[in-house]
Simulated assay, not measured.
Amino acid sequence: MSALRLVIFDVDGTLVDSQADIVAAMSHAFARAERDAPTREAILSIVGLSLDRAIALLAPDVDAGTQGRMVEWYKEAYIALRAKIGAAESSPLYPGAREVLEALNAQPETLLGVATGKSRRGLDKLLEGHGLEGMFITQQVSDHHPSKPHPSMIRAALSETGLEPHQAVMIGDTSFDMEMAAAAGVAGIGVGWGYHPRAALGAARHVIDSFDALPPLLQQIWETAA
């Protein structure tokens, strides 16, 4: 059995707090479509989904063509907001995130991955802004997969690293992340600081409330799986 293990992270609401730009960009898209913007709570409830799926859920009465334009308006607004102050400022890392990432990355047997509803371009800009290029050996983005909670992203990450489900965990803040993990047969670790309430993380095997709690929990999971 390989001694390697894979730790996959969601991004928005898990590693970084990008809610201000997400809410602003979505509000802009709805304004361009001459529609009232959803509430902040409604917008945050769809974070993690692919953008086309998210807008379809938020604007179900809008025709498909307009929904497609809203996707583009959202992207334009998000890029403009990020360019104004930079990715590191517009989407800051949560407390403890960098320290835990660096500690895990220093472990030869631990591989890091990302499974995000962001686009390839969006993820690249974020990693560059935080100086995290090269940190994640497998990076799954919305361009190449069905929206969460479909398990495609995790299955691809396992395939790329040659690992089995029991050798991996998925860390995320939404029900979509935890349902995706369950569907892929991977242990889901929910985080209590993100965009979905703790009560929505029912598919998680574990829930943590700070990054400090992650390393000891991972050690416990690996020992149990051994």
Rank of each mutant, 00 (worst) to 15 (best):
V100P: 05
V100Q: 03
L101S: 06
L101Q: 02
L101C: 06
L101T: 06
E102R: 11
E102W: 01
E102G: 00
E102H: 10
A103K: 09
A103D: 13
A103F: 03
L104M: 12
L104C: 09
L104H: 06
L104T: 09
L104I: 10
L104F: 11
L104K: 06
N105M: 02
A106N: 07
A106M: 05
A106F: 07
A106W: 09
Q107N: 14
Q107L: 15
P108M: 13
P108R: 13
P108C: 14
P108E: 12
E109K: 08
E109A: 15
E109V: 12
E109Y: 04
L111A: 08
L111K: 13
L111W: 14
L112D: 07
L112M: 08
L112H: 08
L112T: 08
G113C: 07
G113R: 12
G113D: 11
V114D: 00
V114R: 04
V114Q: 02
V114H: 03
V114Y: 02
A115C: 13
A115E: 02
T116I: 11
G117H: 13
G117A: 12
K118T: 09
K118L: 15
S119Q: 03
S119N: 06
S119K: 05
S119C: 04
S119L: 12
S119T: 15
S119M: 09
R120M: 01
R120H: 14
R120S: 14
R121I: 06
R121V: 12
R121M: 13
G122A: 11
G122F: 04
G122I: 01
G122K: 04
G122S: 12
L123C: 08
L123M: 10
L123W: 02
L123V: 10
D124F: 12
D124I: 01
K125M: 14
K125Y: 03
K125A: 15
K125G: 09
L126D: 00
L126S: 03
L126V: 01
L127K: 08
L127Q: 05
L127C: 10
E128R: 14
E128V: 13
E128I: 10
E128L: 14
G129V: 12
G129M: 12
G129L: 10
G129R: 06
H130F: 12
H130R: 06
H130P: 01
H130Y: 11
G131A: 11
G131P: 07
G131D: 09
G131L: 13
L132A: 02
L132M: 12
L132Q: 02
E133H: 08
G134L: 10
G134T: 06
M135C: 13
M135Y: 14
F136Q: 03
F136P: 04
F136E: 01
F136K: 11
I137Q: 15
I137W: 07
I137S: 15
I137Y: 01
T138D: 03
T138K: 01
T138I: 01
Q139K: 12
Q139W: 00
